[in-house]
Design a protein around this nucleic acid. Structure first.
Lengths: 203, 203
DNA sequence: CAAAATAAACTAGACAGTCCAGTTTGATCT
DNA sequence: AGATCAAACTGGACTGTCTAGTTTATTTTG
């Protein structure tokens, strides 16, 4: 009926992006609403009119960033060369888990898992569970097609993914000064893929 | 001539314990010096006289708790039954990483790794690196004694330990509502030990 | 014109760190 | 042993800063 003016969707996105930046970079407590508003180029009041409270904004930000996490995208057409397929998967996985975005949101969700279990659950579902499911499907296909002998595809997926994290993930998690070279990482991945294939070889 | 009265070591310990409790439970920012003093049954001034600042107290607390982390304690005498040895190791490792103390300090060190790299480094050295080293020694012995065929003991240790974390660790890290049953965990560990042995079996 | 957005001031509470006035403690000196 | 003295300790008040969230008066815009 009356021509009601709707809130500006662009501003909502600006606020959300600013919130994502600050929350993931600094954590919940250290990110202030004043700065979020300022970085969004928006008044503080507008922030509160779009998102009722800091908590609400936090949820929305984490939800948004989890939804946008790009994931493995496995193609499962030609599995005849498992060595090649699995190495690619391992390399792709390494890229994903070392991306700045994924690391930041992982860190904050793990830290706030006590105070905000909803938030860490969103991440858990969106990232590790989702990826493990994808990989488990691949494992199941490798078994079906008698390329590898994998009794329990879910276990195999967990083993594979956790294994590939290796030392690199610890170094990122604890922000160590020294880092593995890309060569060392690649060596580890290749070693691990070979090991995986030996462990699940058809006998 | 000059009067020397030394600070009360008991109070220092009370303060440190209180700080460890609060920092590990609530994180650096959320733990207030007032509450630390109160829980230590000590005046705020005494806290500042023993530890100059909140940062100093934080470092001391993390250092203390890392030093006290009990670790694997492998006995490497009779390795003739690798299946048994490795399963025990896996079970012991699972206990260690699921202990409340280890989880709390892991969480806070990972979270503060940006703002306080010294702190996360202390943990990194004290826990994951130390354990991996221990296990790598075991792997090397298994190779020497021709029980398993392990080219790269360091890689094998990383593979083994990361693999054993499995789904359980993710659930703890993200404080999920649903948890694996002890039976499910044990099944996974046994599966993984078998897989590991197959992958590194002597031809 | 009415809803949306703005800037800026404001409230109320928390926190790190300091200050202070008075009390306890324990080592040293007589 | 008793007097002395400096340092440790106490509790509470205080400063300055920061924060979430609110209010208000004004401007923009569909």
């Amino acid at each position: 009926m009356v021509n009601k003016r709707s809130k500006n969707e662009t501003k909502r996105k600006q606020i959300l992006n600013s919130a994502i930046d600050l929350f993931t970079e600094q954590g919940y407590a250290a990110a202030s609403m004043d700065l979020i508003a300022k970085n969004a180029d928006v008044s503080k009041q507008t922030v509160y009119s779009h998102f009722g409270s800091k908590d609400d904004l936090f949820f929305a930000a984490i939800e948004q960033v989890c939804a946008s996490l790009h994931i493995l995208d496995l193609s499962m057409d030609d599995l005849s060369d498992p060595q090649h397929i699995l190495l690619q998967l391992a390399q792709r996985f390494t890229e994903v888990i070392t991306s700045k975005q994924a690391c930041s949101v992982h860190k904050i969700c793990a830290f706030e898992s006590g105070a905000y279990p909803q938030v860490s659950d969103i991440f858990y579902q969106a990232a590790p569970l989702r990826v493990t499911n994808e990989v488990a499907q691949l494992m199941a296909k490798l078994h079906e097609q008698k390329i590898l002998n994998i009794d329990n595809a879910w276990h195999a997926a967990l083993q594979f993914l956790n294994m590939m994290k290796g030392e690199l993930w610890m170094q990122i998690e604890f922000n160590t000064k020294e880092r593995l070279t890309p060569q060392e990482v690649d060596d580890y991945l290749r070693d691990s893929v070979d090991f995986f294939i030996r462990g699940y070889a058809i006998k």
